[in-house]
Design a protein around this nucleic acid. Structure first.
Length: 311
DNA sequence: AATTGCATCAACCGCCCAGGC
DNA sequence: GGCCTGGGCGGTTGATGCAAT
């Protein structure tokens, strides 16, 4: 037995909000607040809307200080970095971008940033998966990796390939061609090796075919490659802060470099993010350092991969 | 000028979780 | 401790606008 619907679907209006509805909702909330009960709110004010719809409308559109329009390069960088670090936790990412909503960021990522970063790849992954599954085979299907995790691995490797143009990723001749995941398999291939190594409790034994096994990978990339023209001015100089103090200094002629350090072993992601991403501090950090710590622990991504594939 | 395909974004859907009873 | 409910979230859909042909 499914749960009861939150509202009477038959008597609820759907679709775009009219200016009148917006005005009613906005006026009421500004005067009385939400009352802590979104479900009851539309009845109170005579709106034939689902409470959840009211909440969404308020949070994504009517709420004060909502930013609409184009995202700045700083915002793009923050979104990319955080996505790589924590995945599609849009609400957490939105918390670092004042005035932006999770929905906005999600849309922006899906429509623009993802294409900007991954668009150059040869074939959409989904197609490759379809092709793979169409092949008759008695083998067990490849483990399903969530698109988010795989995407992040791809992104990470994209960054890695920028860092090292002679890497395995950039050398198709080295790509294995027999894995169920087809062309994308250089990733899985390495993952298999890593999985074996980890199963043996000996990650040190794992010898990747490209350099993605460092405990902490220091990303260094030319922002222009990602479509960013330059380091965000407001972010100041690159960070040399606490945990990244050993990072190489950045002296790009015309690009910026990202250094990251995200620790997935931390259970409280939000605390970690808030620690590293004082959003106000982006421009006002007394250290004047660019704390764009898109810090990536490859092993953490591996762990996530392992978790997902073992389920 | 009409048609088609693509990009964008607002809104919905359904699941999960936390809190109250 | 278990159930119920509302809030929150991420994924997806559908309407709309725009560009290309």
């Amino acid at each position: 037995m499914g749960r009861a619907p939150c509202c009477d679907k038959a008597n609820v209006k759907k679709g775009p909000w009219s200016p009148e509805e917006d005005a009613i909702l906005k006026a009421y909330i500004e005067e009385h607040g939400t009352g802590g009960n979104w479900i009851a709110l539309p009845h109170k004010i005579g709106l034939k809307r689902c409470g959840k719809s009211c909440r969404l409308r308020w949070l994504n559109y009517l709420r004060p200080n909502i930013k609409h329009g184009d995202f700045s390069e700083e915002e793009d960088l923050i979104i990319c970095s955080l996505y790589i670090s924590i995945g599609s936790r849009w609400s957490i990412i939105a918390a670092q971008l004042p005035g932006r909503t999770d929905n906005d960021i999600k849309n922006h990522w899906n429509t623009k940033l993802k294409k900007k970063l991954l668009g150059k790849k040869r074939e959409p992954l989904q197609h490759r998966r379809v092709h793979a599954t169409q092949q008759p085979s008695n083998d067990k299907p490849p483990p399903a990796v969530t698109s988010s995790a795989l995407e992040r691995i791809q992104l990470h490797m994209q960054l890695q390939s920028v860092y090292n143009p002679f890497s395995f990723y950039h050398n198709p001749a080295q790509w294995p061609d027999h894995h169920a995941l087809g062309e994308s398999n250089f990733q899985s291939h390495n993952m298999d090796d890593m999985a074996k190594a980890q199963a043996l409790g000996d990650m040190a034994a794992y010898q990747p075919k490209f350099d993605m096994h460092n405990t902490t990978i220091q990303e260094e990339m030319d922002c222009s490659t990602l479509g960013f023209r330059s380091p965000p001015d407001s972010l100041g100089a690159p960070s040399t802060d606490r945990s990244r103090s050993s990072s190489n200094p950045l002296e790009p002629a015309n690009g910026c470099k990202l250094y990251g350090s995200c620790d997935y072993k931390q259970t409280n992601v939000e605390v970690e993010i808030m620690d590293s991403w004082d959003c106000n501090g982006l421009s006002e950090d007394t250290s004047g350092l660019w704390d764009l710590t898109a810090v990536i622990h490859a092993d953490s991504m591996l762990q996530e991969y392992m978790r997902e594939t073992q389920c």
